[in-house]
Lab assay of single mutants.
Amino acid sequence: MASDGVVVEIGKVTGSVGTTVEIPVYFRGVPSKGIANCDFVFRYDPNVLEIIGIDPGDIIVDPNPTKSFDTAIYPDRKIIVFLFAEDSGTGAYAITKDGVFAKIRATVKSSAPGYITFDEVGGFADNDLVEQKVSFIDGGVNVGNATPTKGATPTNTATPTK
């Protein structure tokens, strides 16, 4: 695992066909100046998982989280898009600690492993708008004895992609 920078880890949970599971997305290594904004994309298989919603985690402190935390689910493109932009203008609602960034709610549709993997990152910046190093650890849903650990090695991303 990367020793510096922010680590975004997609949790690994267990479920069975027809059940709804909650998959946490963790941030670790949050910089001392916090995270003022970030955007990134995960990939998944809508034939295996139906993403039914995404909720902000406990490290989102904006009293009205829909102003700073936004997501979009595109089953036709097989992606989930995340956007966080601190909304106070003063840094008061920045992410300042490690913990759960988001909770992905999904219904298991198939007995195949439900991988959720890193696809791309736009950027991560602290309260001074300084770009942060970030790496990703894939996860998803274990169905029966299947284990979604494909790509469990962190993917280092030093520069934003478009």
Results as ranks from 00 to 15, higher is better:
Ile10Pro: 06
Gly140Lys: 14
Ser32Gly: 10
Asp128Ser: 08
Gly139Tyr: 13
Pro160Gln: 11
Gly122Asn: 00
Arg77Asn: 00
Ser16Ala: 12
Pro113Ala: 07
Ile51Pro: 04
Ala125Pro: 00
Gly57Asn: 15
Ala152Val: 13
Arg105Val: 14
Gly144Tyr: 13
Ile80Gln: 09
Phe69Thr: 09
Glu86Ile: 00
Val121Met: 06
Phe101Gly: 04
Arg77Tyr: 15
Val143Cys: 07
Glu50Ile: 03
Leu129Met: 03
Ala92Ser: 06
Ala125Ile: 00
Arg43Lys: 10
Pro148Phe: 02
Met1Leu: 06
Pro24Phe: 10
Tyr74Asp: 00
Ala106Glu: 02
Gly99Thr: 10
Gln132Pro: 03
Asp87Ile: 14
Lys133Gly: 04
Phe101Trp: 15
Thr159Ala: 09
Val143Ile: 14
Val48Ile: 05
Val141Ala: 12
Gly122Pro: 00
Pro154Gln: 11
Ser16Lys: 11
Arg43Met: 04
Thr117Phe: 05
Val100Lys: 13
Phe101Ser: 06
Gly99Glu: 12
Ala112Thr: 05
Gly114Glu: 09
Gly29Pro: 12
Ala36Tyr: 00
Ile104Lys: 01
Thr19Gln: 04
Val30Tyr: 04
Asp138Tyr: 08
Phe101Gln: 11
Thr153Pro: 12
Lys150Asn: 11
Gly5Pro: 05
Tyr44Glu: 14
Glu86Asp: 01
Pro154Ala: 09
Thr14Leu: 09
Glu9Arg: 08
Lys33Arg: 07
Lys78Thr: 04
Ile10Lys: 07
Pro113Met: 02
Phe136Leu: 03
Asn64Glu: 15
Gly123Arg: 00
Ile35Thr: 03
Thr20His: 06
Ala102Ile: 09
Ile35Leu: 07
Gly57Gln: 15
Val100Cys: 07
Thr157Lys: 12
Phe124Glu: 00
Thr19Cys: 12
Asp70Val: 15
Ala152Lys: 07
Lys103Gly: 13
Ile80Arg: 00
Val13Pro: 09
Glu86Gln: 01
Glu86Ser: 01
Lys33Asn: 11
Ala146Ile: 12
Phe101Arg: 00
Ser110Arg: 13
Ala125Val: 01
Ile79Leu: 03
Lys109Arg: 12
Asn156Gln: 13
Lys150Phe: 07
Pro24Met: 04
Arg28His: 07
Thr71Val: 02
Lys150Ala: 11
Thr96Leu: 08
Ala36His: 00
Asp98His: 08
Gly139Cys: 09
Ser111Thr: 12
Gly89Asn: 01
Glu22Cys: 09
Thr153Leu: 11
Ser111Val: 03
Gly53Gln: 05
Asp4Cys: 02
Leu49Lys: 15
Lys33Ala: 11
Val6Asn: 11
Tyr74Ser: 00
Gly18Cys: 06
Thr117Glu: 04
Gly29Cys: 02
Thr153Asp: 12
Ser16Gln: 07
Asp4Met: 03
Ile80Asn: 09
Pro56Lys: 08
Ile95Glu: 00
Thr153His: 08
Asp39His: 00
Ile80Asp: 15
Gly89Leu: 03
Asp62Tyr: 15
Cys38Trp: 01
Ile137His: 12
Asp55Ile: 06
Gly91Ala: 14
Phe136Gly: 13
Thr66His: 14
Ala92Ile: 13
Ala106Val: 13
Phe82His: 09
Gly11Arg: 10
Thr90Pro: 01
Phe136Ala: 13
Phe69Lys: 01
Asp62Val: 14
Ala158Tyr: 13
Asp58Ser: 10
Gly34Tyr: 04
Phe84Ile: 01
Lys109Gly: 08
Glu120Tyr: 03
Gly139Pro: 02
Ala102Lys: 14
Gly34Glu: 04
Asn47Ala: 05
Asn127Thr: 02
Ser88Thr: 04
Asp87Cys: 15
Val143Gly: 10
Tyr74Thr: 00
Ala146Gln: 10
Gly18Gln: 08
Ser16Arg: 13
Ser32Tyr: 10
Lys12Met: 14
Gly29Tyr: 08
Ala2Ser: 14
Glu9Asn: 07
Asp126Gln: 02
Thr117Ala: 04
Leu129Phe: 15
Lys150Arg: 09
Pro63Val: 11
Phe40Glu: 14
Asp98Tyr: 10
Val108Gln: 14
Leu83Gln: 00
Val130Ser: 12
Ile73Met: 02
Ile23Gly: 11
Val6Asp: 10
Ile23Ser: 08
Thr14Gln: 11
Asp4Tyr: 07
Gly18Glu: 04
Glu86Thr: 00
Asn47His: 07
Gly57Met: 13
Val6Gln: 14
Asp119Glu: 03
Lys12Thr: 12
Phe136Ser: 11
Asp62Leu: 14
Asp76Val: 01
Val41Met: 01
Asp39Tyr: 01
Arg105Lys: 12
Val21Ile: 07
Pro31Tyr: 13
Ser32Lys: 08
Ile79Trp: 14
Lys67Pro: 14
Tyr93Leu: 11
Asp138Phe: 06
Val130Thr: 07
Gly99Gln: 14
Ile54Ala: 03
Asp119Phe: 06
Lys109Tyr: 08
Asp4Asn: 08
Leu49Phe: 15
Asn145Glu: 10
Asp128Val: 05
Ile116Phe: 04
Glu22Gly: 06
Val121Asp: 15
Lys97Leu: 10
Ile95Arg: 02
Thr153Lys: 05
Glu22Ile: 04
Thr159Leu: 11
Arg43Phe: 05
Asp128Pro: 01
Tyr44Thr: 06
Asp98Leu: 11
Thr71Asn: 03
Thr161Phe: 12
Glu22Asn: 07
Thr149His: 13
Ser110Met: 11
Gly5Asn: 07
Ala85Lys: 02
Val30Ile: 13
Asp128Gln: 06
Asp119Ile: 05
Pro63Phe: 14
Ser135Phe: 06
Phe136His: 12
Tyr44Cys: 15
Thr66Pro: 09
Tyr74Pro: 00
Thr71Asp: 09
Ile52Val: 06
Phe40Ala: 03
Asn47Ser: 07
Gly53His: 11
Val30Asp: 03
Pro160Cys: 09
Asn127Lys: 02
Pro113Val: 07
Val108Ile: 10
Phe69Ala: 06
Ala102Asn: 13
Ser68Leu: 09
Asp58Ile: 12
Glu131Trp: 01
Asp87Val: 15
Gly15Leu: 07
Tyr26Leu: 14
Thr155Ala: 13
Pro63Ile: 12
Asp62Asn: 13
Pro154Lys: 12
Gly5Ser: 14
Gly123Asn: 00
Gly34Asn: 06
Gly57Phe: 15
Arg43Val: 10
Gln132Leu: 09
Tyr74Val: 00
Gly139Val: 03
Cys38Ile: 00
Ser111Pro: 09
Ala146Pro: 13
Val141Arg: 12
Ala72Thr: 00
Arg105Ile: 03
Thr147Pro: 12
Ile60Arg: 15
Ile59Tyr: 07
Gly122Trp: 00
Asp4Ala: 06
Pro160Trp: 05
Ile35Cys: 01
Ile116Cys: 08
Val13Cys: 04
Phe27Lys: 02
Asp126Asn: 14
Thr66Cys: 11
Phe136Pro: 08
Gly11Val: 09
Val25Thr: 06
Gly151Val: 14
Tyr93Cys: 12
Pro160Phe: 10
Ile51Arg: 11
Phe118Pro: 04
Ile116Ala: 05
Ile116Lys: 01
Ala146Tyr: 09
Thr90Asn: 06
Lys67Ala: 11
Thr157His: 12
Ala72Gly: 02
Val41Ala: 01
Asn142Thr: 13
Lys12Cys: 05
Lys67His: 15
Ala92Leu: 10
Glu50Asn: 11
Glu120Ala: 04
Thr66Gln: 09
Pro160His: 14
Gly89Gln: 01
Asn145Ala: 12
Arg105Pro: 11
Gly29Glu: 03
Thr159Arg: 09
Ser32Asp: 10
Phe84His: 02
Leu129Asn: 02
Gly29Asp: 04
Val61Leu: 13
Thr147Asp: 14
Gly151Lys: 14
Asp119Asn: 05
Phe40Asn: 03
Val13Ile: 11
Ile137Met: 08
Tyr115Cys: 06
Lys150Pro: 12
Val17Glu: 14
Asp128Trp: 03
Val61Asp: 04
Ile104His: 05
Gly5Tyr: 10
Asp55Val: 07
Tyr93Pro: 01
Ala158Trp: 13
Val6His: 08
Glu50Cys: 04
Tyr26Pro: 09
Gly18Val: 09
Ile23Arg: 05
Tyr93Ile: 09
Gly139Glu: 05
Pro46Trp: 11
Gly139Ala: 12
Gly15Cys: 04
Gly151Glu: 10
Val17Ala: 10
Ile79Met: 12
Val6Leu: 08
Tyr26His: 08
Ile116Leu: 05
Cys38Glu: 00
Ala72Pro: 00
Gly144Gln: 08
Asp39Gly: 00
Ile116Gly: 03
Val41Gln: 00
Pro75Ser: 07
Thr66Val: 14
Lys67Ile: 09
Asp39Gln: 01
Lys33Asp: 02
Gly99Leu: 11
Val25Ser: 08
Thr14Val: 15
Val13Ser: 12
Ala112Val: 08
Leu49Arg: 03
